[in-house]
Simulated assay, not measured.
Amino acid sequence: MKKSLLNALVYILLATPILSFAGVDTVSTHSAIMNKEIKAVVITPKNYDTSKEYPVTYLLHGYSGNYASWIKGAPQIEQLADLYQMIIVSPDGNFDSWYWDSPTNPDSKYETYFIKELIPFIDENYETIPSKEGRAITGLSMGGHGALYLAIRHQDIFGVAGSQSGGVDITPFPENWNMKGYLGTKSEFPERWKEFSVMGQLHLLSKNNLPLIIHCGTDDFFYQVNLKLHEELTYLNIPHSFTSNPGGHTWDYWRDSVQYQLLFFNNYFKGIAQKQ
């Protein structure tokens, strides 16, 4: 175990999570960078064993969602965590943060929170594989953008990443989803809007360093930007899995998609384990 009984008691008193050490937990973490409490759902396999280490998938919600969106919208992820023997963490990214460190709003620093505060908290208080080889990240819509944005910018933290119906290029949507509240207007800051988009981070990728899986339905309003991402990754010779199939921006699509993405991550984790 990583913690002594004393440390565990101190953790319970100070962090005040609701812990069962199996199944579905709700934890509250204090963000020093934003000076507030932030919740997350943590799903562990039913036979969660503190003598083992588990890979972790971070599962990000979409615009207007919260930490409970995934467990409510796709409750089968609990069984998938058990099937693949992984921990699934669904954190709160505020309803419209886009998972950025906002250059205009000092109270919205979600990139720093995820990388510097949440991940260390999970590694300290759960039995994880505390390295990039044991971490995956994906999400839907705003969370699909957030997952790729964070993974590409922090390839030392995440070993594999995905996106489901992700807003992977924000530049065609200057008036939508309160993005200008965090970036300023596109007309004033056009370069910033490019930089804070997934498409603006692709220069950081290199071949075979970050396996990617991207899903988007052909009836989705983000379909064209996902197709553009696929074409650009292909041009850059970056290996990735891209699936476009019938479907819209709906939970029916994401409930199906998440199953394939978690399988993809499981295969990555198993491949790493076999090499060690």
Rank of each mutant, 00 (worst) to 15 (best):
L6P: 01
L6A: 05
V10R: 14
I12E: 15
L14M: 09
L14K: 14
S20G: 08
F21H: 12
F21V: 08
F21C: 08
F21I: 04
F21A: 13
V24F: 00
D25N: 14
T26G: 01
T29L: 15
S31H: 05
S31Y: 02
N35S: 09
K36D: 01
E37C: 13
I38R: 03
K39H: 15
I43N: 12
N47Y: 13
S51F: 07
V56T: 08
N66W: 06
Y67S: 13
A68R: 15
G73Y: 01
G73F: 10
A74D: 00
I77L: 07
D82Q: 08
D82S: 13
I88L: 01
P91L: 06
D92H: 10
D92R: 07
Y99M: 04
T104R: 07
T104W: 02
T104M: 09
P106L: 10
P106N: 10
P106T: 07
S108R: 11
E111C: 02
Y113S: 03
K116R: 11
E117N: 01
P120E: 08
P120R: 06
D123S: 08
T128W: 13
I129D: 00
I129R: 05
P130I: 06
K132P: 01
K132L: 10
E133R: 09
G139H: 11
S141V: 05
H145C: 04
A147R: 09
L148N: 07
L148K: 09
A151G: 10
R153K: 15
F158K: 01
G159N: 05
V160L: 11
A161N: 01
P172I: 03
P174C: 04
P174A: 02
N178L: 14
M179V: 02
K180A: 01
G181Q: 06
G184H: 05
S187F: 03
E188H: 11
E188K: 15
R192H: 00
W193K: 05
W193G: 00
K194I: 12
E195W: 02
F196L: 03
V198N: 07
Q201Y: 00
H203I: 07
N208T: 03
N209V: 14
I214F: 04
D219A: 07
F221H: 11
F222N: 10
Q224A: 15
V225Q: 13
V225P: 01
N226C: 04
K228W: 03
L229N: 12
E231M: 03
E232R: 11
T234K: 15
T234E: 14
H240D: 08
H240M: 06
G248N: 08
H249A: 05
H249I: 01
Y253T: 05
R255K: 11
S257P: 00
V258A: 04
F265Y: 05
F265E: 05
Y268L: 02
A273G: 09
